[in-house]
Design a protein around this nucleic acid. Structure first.
Lengths: 320, 320
DNA sequence: GAAGTCCAAGAAATCGATTTCGTCAAGGTC
DNA sequence: GACCTTGACGAAATCGATTTCTTGGACTTC
């Protein structure tokens, strides 16, 4: 790979002039032409590492998501990527496995790699943004917020929980349980608070054990559903606060010999490939890509110098 | 963020000594202790960009995949990531959208960012590895091969196509069509060659139009299936050469009012969430994660100095 | 003619970590 | 005692691109 010194020698100018041709304007047309020709002949590509070190910045942003195999997050990543690319930025996708230790490591890497900013679906309320914040790099929290004063984009999760639970009520169900994600995750809590709000408003009983916490994955939803079905007074319907747990719950229902068409299931998020889903399943569609593009837009504004106070944008989910 | 100069000043040594403490061995125990204490007090993290520029290498590898929303590739990515992390490497995941232009751009970025190597699911036979090859950085092709002399890991795709088609035959189907991916993709071609091989060996007719090419996605499979169903002599079964096209094909079958339980479908790859799948669907399970871990292992060996001639490892798919 | 201003462009410094080179001291061998 | 080897460690160079500083020439104004 050719260096700027080789281009300069071939063009008969100094390296500073080569740099000026590509980054600034005070070069005569004659020397500009010589430089561009030399660069083309040598297929010159600036060494991005050297640029990054000198400029203390780069055209790379990090996206930290908790589970690369969850279609919600891959759709969100697509949204981020599409928007970032429009502005000449690359996205480094980091999979935290919902593990705060992994998350911290990626945040440190983002800082020591001079990344232009970070979009973060936090693994917990304890995301440590110290390293990245001390550099003044912008951060946007997506889907879940963080105590740090940073921009955020999220879904109105309580409204999603309300809409899903209301739909189960409207379908005639009264004994409605809830399978939520791990304790301490904001989007989880808001969704089951929506469930509880509807149950309370409708004066429906919430028997002991009707709120189960699981691990966000199909196997967690499966285990929780089995637990619910083993209760003295099993539910006739269930809300799961994410899509993969909904799959696991439905699986447990089928395995227990319960007719899926008569069991009520509401899922926050989309079950993949809807036509294969029993007709009675309520799905609350999350705007995953829109979350991604919105987060990227906000981050790009910060990178571009936007200095207004941190804000939170709330997007609506909708019944599918 | 503290620099090595600040650590050196606090420890009362030169920056070269600080570097030696963390990278070499010729430092007295007394000075080692002073350096480590100073580094801890200042929360020193080496500036990775500076390291990378000086060393002309990094602990980052790139993984280029053609579709981040295809579960096959996200599982492959998980395999790569798990293996790379074991050895202290980070993975940069790049989504090429099966677009050779995007692929080329990412390859150039990998070169100008001094990445340690690239694992590449090529977007076409024309992947241009010139930039990365001129740096001597190792490349491993995964799932599909490339004309460049590099290591490769793939599935025995012809055997997968043979197994899938044979299973349809054994289920009693004789009019078996094939929906393949875009022309020119090696894995696609091997799979439909497997289909054709079985059809020929079993002396089954292949009417005009029984081989459809589609775009790898559910919508492509959907359109191709509709085309097949509109033939004068529609097939009673179909092989799709990837999972998403299988979903689209099944959707078209349902929409056409054909009973999915009586229509034969074989899919190379796993349909998501099997229990929702009509029981007659044949699935040939691809070892996606194993592809990933194998590719990463080979790349790490190359990074570590392995200089033997390029090799290709072929993994087997299996009937689910 | 002298002084001031502006522009183009080369030389040198900068970014932060690593490596190379040179020096000194200690120990061993002849 | 002289010479050689080894280890520790500081000073300087290196990586490649960008930015800052300085200089010279051209032009304008007084």
């Amino acid at each position: 790979m050719a260096t700027i010194y080789e281009v300069a020698a071939l063009a008969g100018v100094s390296p500073a002039t080569v740099s000026r041709v590509f980054n600034g304007n005070t070069v005569s047309p004659e020397k500009q032409r010589a430089v561009r020709e030399a660069a083309a002949k040598l297929a010159f590509t600036p060494n991005k590492t050297a640029r990054r070190l000198r400029k203390q910045s780069s055209e790379v942003v990090a996206l930290l998501i908790p589970d690369i195999e969850n279609p919600f997050f891959t759709a969100l990543a697509r949204g981020v990527e599409d928007k970032a690319q429009e502005s000449g930025f690359s996205v480094v996708l980091c999979n935290t496995d919902d593990d705060p230790g992994k998350e911290l490591r990626y945040l440190q890497i983002a800082a020591s790699e001079q990344m232009a900013g970070v979009i973060l679906a936090p693994a917990s309320d304890e995301a440590d943004l110290g390293a990245i914040a001390s550099l003044g790099s912008p951060v946007v929290a997506v889907d879940r917020t963080t105590p740090y004063p940073v921009d955020a984009v999220k879904v109105d999760n309580r409204a999603a929980g309300i809409a899903a639970t209301t739909a189960l009520f409207d379908a005639g169900h009264r004994r409605i349980a809830c399978i939520a994600g791990p304790v301490g995750i904001e989007s989880t809590e808001d969704r089951f608070l929506g469930w509880r709000q509807v149950m309370t408003a409708r004066r429906a009983a919430i028997p002991e054990g009707y709120l189960q916490h699981a691990n966000f994955r199909a196997d967690g939803g499966h285990a929780a559903m089995r637990h619910l079905l083993a209760l003295p007074e099993p539910p006739e319907a269930v809300l799961t606060t994410n899509n993969l747990m909904g799959v696991g719950a439905l699986q447990a229902v089928v395995e227990a010999g319960v007719d899926p068409a008569r069991f009520g299931l509401a899922v926050v998020g989309e079950l993949p490939f809807m036509f294969l889903t029993p007709p009675a399943v309520v799905q609350v569609r999350l705007p995953a890509r829109h979350l991604g593009t919105t987060a990227a837009t906000m981050l790009l504004e910060r990178i571009g110098g936007d200095a207004q106070p941190p804000r939170t944008v709330v997007l609506r989910a909708e019944l599918a």
